[in-house]
């Protein structure tokens, strides 16, 4: 019995990481209706940037965040203005295929630079430390990851609904032309949204790298987890995305408890069940 409870708790905490994968995806879709196929590869890129920072400066992964977040955010802004803005329009093919091409480029560039050998970010003591709660040992790292996910989502929520930048995001999302008339340059606003999304991606990448080993090929899997969390939670609802991540995480850990080969399958099945029963997700955005 306690083992099952343990699986569920681990799954909930894992959901925090998935919510971080999903938050950037959700934000980008919300602002500019762009689905970024390279999202997972960008998470892995961030993990490798963290690796290089840690190796070069000899710092803890959390300290590396101070460098990787601004680098990824800057990269996001440039990527959006230099490339992705040109793909936006009524046709869904250009953004899809361009980000698909980007995914292949990032993956193979990482392969070229870092080889296919699995890497890991060394978090030191935090990786193994745990606190006992009623017979369970809850790892500090998963707990911290989950807490960071909550802080990030609360932060994004605040940016979206309580700042001028967020107002701009929502206005451009509603009506590009009219927003432009009000002095918002949509190319710039989209650049900021992508910068914010890749800032979150940086956090997700570093936490992923501390949790498990990674190699250049695993980006696609992270994209799919993030995507599943978004759809389970309901499009356009950031807190729903956290719930979606938790459901996905719990499904995976319970699946793994039944049979290790079932971990990923159980997550995908949970996603398909939600899609069958509640196509708009469990917590679709309420119009206000």
């Amino acid at each position: 019995m306690i083992e099952w409870v343990n699986s569920i708790v681990q799954g909930i905490l894992l959901g925090g990481l998935y919510a971080l994968f999903a938050a950037g995806l959700s934000l980008i879709f919300g602002v500019m209706r762009l689905v970024n196929i390279a999202h997972g590869d960008l998470i892995i890129l961030a993990a490798y940037m963290g690796l290089t920072t840690i190796v070069m400066l000899g710092v803890h992964p959390f300290v590396a965040l101070l460098i990787v977040i601004p680098l990824m955010a800057g990269f996001g802004y440039v990527l959006q203005r230099g490339l992705l803005n040109q793909t936006l329009g009524d046709d869904i093919l250009p953004p899809l295929l361009v980000t698909f091409g980007l995914s292949v480029i990032i993956q193979n560039a990482l392969l070229e630079i870092y080889t296919a050998d699995p890497q890991k970010l060394n978090g030191g003591l935090i990786e193994t430390a745990s606190i006992p709660v009623g017979g369970l040992a809850i790892g500090i790292l998963p707990l911290v990851t989950f807490a960071i996910a909550i802080v990030v989502i609360a932060g994004l929520q605040w940016v979206f609904y309580a700042t001028a930048i967020g107002r701009g995001f929502r206005a451009v999302s509603d009506n590009q032309d009219i927003a432009q008339l009000m002095g918002l340059n949509k190319a710039h606003v989209y650049g900021l949204a992508m910068a914010l999304a890749l800032g979150v991606v940086a956090i997700a990448g570093i936490l992923l790298g501390m949790r498990t080993s990674f190699d250049p090929s695993i980006g696609a899997g992270r994209l799919i987890f993030g995507f599943e969390a978004v759809i389970i939670g309901g499009l356009g609802n950031l807190w729903g995305t956290l719930a979606g991540g938790v459901i996905l995480g719990v499904a995976q850990t319970i699946g793994a408890k039944i049979d290790p080969g079932w971990q990923l399958l159980a997550g995908h099945i949970a996603f398909l069940v939600v899609l069958a029963l509640r196509p708009n997700g469990l917590f679709p955005r309420v119009e206000h």
Binding site: V98, G101, I105, N108, E112
Partner: peptide
């Protein structure tokens, strides 16, 4: 190897943008 795949990705992006 990997370089070839990067070229392929790049060609696809350029074609999509410049000659859809």
């Amino acid at each position: 190897g990997t370089f070839y795949l990067m070229v392929l990705g790049l060609v696809a992006i350029v074609v999509m943008l410049k000659a859809p």
